[in-house]
């Protein structure tokens, strides 16, 4: 330390030069690409750091899968006592379970750290994210990214695959297309709910339980046939928090089951539109939440 200021041989002395002129703000159309890049960077780093402890990673993923496997066992046990649940067979229920599980599993994989936002607001660590040249949403979403959450997605995929092998579906090009569309829309709807919940945490730091009741609660709801629930609940899940569009409504077309609310058939196809609408609402709520944080400092 004593010779700190003395130029040393072999090393260019260029101490802390000023930053080079920063190019003007990038055009708006570049921002999504920049955000995705940053998301990839953070996710990549967390994944590498998790893989550094390979055994621990394998055990966590296995444990995650085993836990969710037990979850489906509960559904199977019900069918040990009856062959139909609200008019749905085991394979049909497994289809609902698999599609709902994959949708929330994907949302949880991509944005699972959102519910930690309230904690960040409370302890002030959100400020550190606000001084980095990366959108806060991306940083919060990618924070502590855990690849082990793939365990849940894989388990749901297995249940879905099994149900498809047992179901007698009259596949048409339309229904073949509808399956991936409903999975992506479902993941988008759950992602929007995660984001909405997080947006509230900017203002109400401990809202994560409310958020959980809509996300994980919504998952528990859509795992079962809509016919076992009260009409009011199904209505609420259709028109208020549109979780019915995750799988209940589009699934009626694939499974050939009746529309739970007797709505017109075109409703089976609007999940992508509903997903886009709730995502837009979530984006607005997120911006409003961030703005309120930045003006109150919480």
């Amino acid at each position: 330390m004593a010779d700190a200021g003395v130029p040393r041989a072999g090393r260019p002395v260029r101490p802390f030069p000023p930053g080079e002129p920063v190019p003007p703000e990038e055009p708006a159309w570049r921002r999504p690409a920049d955000g995705l890049r940053a998301y990839g960077l953070i996710v990549g780093m967390w994944t590498r750091s998790a893989l550094a402890y390979r055994l621990s990673f394998v055990m966590m993923t296995f444990g995650n899968g085993a836990l969710t496997a037990l979850d489906f066992a509960a559904v199977a046990i019900i069918f040990g006592h009856t062959t139909r649940l609200g008019g749905f067979s085991l394979a049909q229920t497994a289809f609902l379970y698999g599609t709902s599980g994959m949708a929330i599993g994907l949302a949880d994989l991509l944005l699972g750290s959102m519910d930690g936002l309230g904690q960040r607001v409370r302890d002030g660590t959100l400020d550190a994210m606000l001084v980095r040249p990366v959108p806060v949403f991306v940083q919060v979403a990618a924070d502590r990214f855990a690849l082990r959450r793939l365990g849940r997605v894989s388990q749901a995929a297995l249940v879905l695959a099994w149900s498809l092998s047992r179901l007698d579906v009259a596949w048409t090009p339309g229904t073949v297309l509808l399956l991936p569309v409903m999975l992506v829309s479902g993941a988008a709807i759950f992602s929007a709910v995660f984001t909405l919940g997080a947006a509230f945490q900017f203002r109400f730091g401990d809202a994560s339980e409310v958020q959980n009741s809509f996300t994980y609660g919504g998952n528990a709801l859509t795992q079962y046939p809509p016919t076992v629930f009260a009409k009011e609940l199904v209505r609420g899940a259709t028109f208020v928090v549109p979780l019915a569009f995750v799988n209940w409504l589009p699934a009626t077309l694939i499974l050939g089951t009746p529309q739970p609310l007797g709505l017109p058939r075109w409703v089976d196809w609007v999940s992508p539109l509903v997903a886009a609408a709730v995502c837009a609402a979530a984006a607005v709520a997120w911006q409003a939440g961030l703005r309120s944080y930045r003006s109150t400092g919480s």
Binding site: V22, E25, M45, R48, S49, D123, A128, V131, R132, V134
Partner: peptide, 28 residues
Amino acid sequence: RERTRLARRIGVVFGQRTTLWWDLPLRD
């Protein structure tokens, strides 16, 4: 108004809390 653009040109140290990633080695 241009928080993220400014971010590249400033450095911030909060003595009370770290801006580093808690679970990661410094190098990462």
